[in-house]
């Protein structure tokens, strides 16, 4: 008993030093390349800095001013829709995909890899493909619908508020389905088969088994995947920048694109930093739920 406690004390000693040592390489990298930019970003948001013009400290003025900015209101609303409304679609469609892929399928590895494509192809490039599919004049979808006699003029994919928001959300969902699908598939494969067998013996049908056995097992994973997806989507930029740049009339602006416009084209990087940092509490809120949730399950 005595020797064990002496040993474990030694371990604790070694653990603390080893722990710090192991943290170091990553932390140094993060400190040099992330911490400084991050704190500078916070500082910028409290100044009226423009590109090439050192600014002065103006307190929370940028933040307060944004509260009166109509375009910012619209941007905030758009971002919420974009990040939150898309998630249930991604989750449901991803779940469907996972349920299919969880069967014995021929060529399952190449099929899985191909289905991952929307998620793995650089967004800057796949969005260009969509940009072409949504072309106001040459859209193949418009062409097909006209050919089939459903409509008689081109669909204004990115120029009409409702259709544009739908189109943008769809591309986002399209990109997210594979990630949800593969993650949920991982969850499905971890469900012990005995549970299903037992439920089947108890007379549960397929749907009941799904609700009572599968769903509770993958609930945690679904939650984590959704939160991650929300966090990523909030901070999105490339997809909308390629498709609409926030147009028409700001109806598709999100935090990332609006900050970019104000900062790089309008040169007000102080204001741009404030726009971006408005995201931080929202993202932190979702992450704290995420982390608490994970801690509970761990």
């Amino acid at each position: 008993m005595n020797s064990v406690s002496i040993q474990s004390e030694k371990f604790l000693d070694r653990e603390s030093s080893l722990g710090v040592l192991l943290m170091l390489p990553g932390l140094i990298l993060l400190a040099v390349f992330l911490a400084y930019p991050f704190f500078l970003g916070i500082w910028l948001s409290l100044t009226d800095t423009r590109i090439g013009m050192p600014g002065e400290f103006i307190g929370l003025w940028n933040y307060v001013d944004l509260l009166e900015d109509e375009i910012f209101h619209q941007t905030a609303l758009n971002t919420m829709v974009y990040a939150l409304v898309t998630v249930p679609f991604k989750a449901v469609m991803g779940l469907g995909l996972a349920l299919i892929l969880n069967n014995q399928i021929r060529f399952s590895n190449p099929i899985r890899a191909f289905i991952m494509l929307p998620w793995i192809v650089p967004t800057a490039l796949s969005s260009l493909g969509w940009f072409m599919i949504f072309d106001p004049v040459f859209s193949p979808i418009s062409w097909l619908m006209i050919e089939m006699g459903f409509i008689d003029s081109n669909i204004n994919f990115l120029g009409d508020q409702l259709i544009a928001v739908t189109a943008i959300c769809w591309v986002n969902i399209w990109r997210g389905i594979p990630f949800f699908g593969i993650s949920i598939l991982a969850g499905l494969q971890a469900v012990p088969p005995e549970l299903h067998e037992q439920a089947a013996i108890d007379g549960a049908n397929k749907f009941q088994r799904f609700i009572n056995v599968t769903l509770p097992q993958i609930k945690g994973l679904l939650m984590i995947t959704s939160l991650l997806s929300i966090i990523w989507t909030f901070a999105d930029f490339q997809l909308i920048y390629v498709l609409t740049k926030g147009g028409p009339a700001n109806q598709t602006h999100i935090f990332g694109t609006y900050a970019y416009q104000i900062g790089l084209f309008g040169t007000e990087i102080g204001m741009a930093a404030a726009i971006t940092l408005y995201m931080f509490p929202i993202l932190a809120f979702f992450s704290i739920i995420l982390l608490r949730y994970m801690r509970k399950t761990a």
Partner: peptide, 30 residues
């Protein structure tokens, strides 16, 4: 491993993940 600040580090590292690149790239360029 248990070491000073290990609890805080776990959350801290995840939080820095939340900083969007659209804000970071100019200071990072410096």
């Amino acid at each position: 491993l248990k070491f000073p600040g290990s609890d805080f580090m776990g959350i801290g590292i995840f939080l820095v993940y939340l900083v969007p690149p659209t804000l970071l790239f100019i200071p990072m360029a410096e």
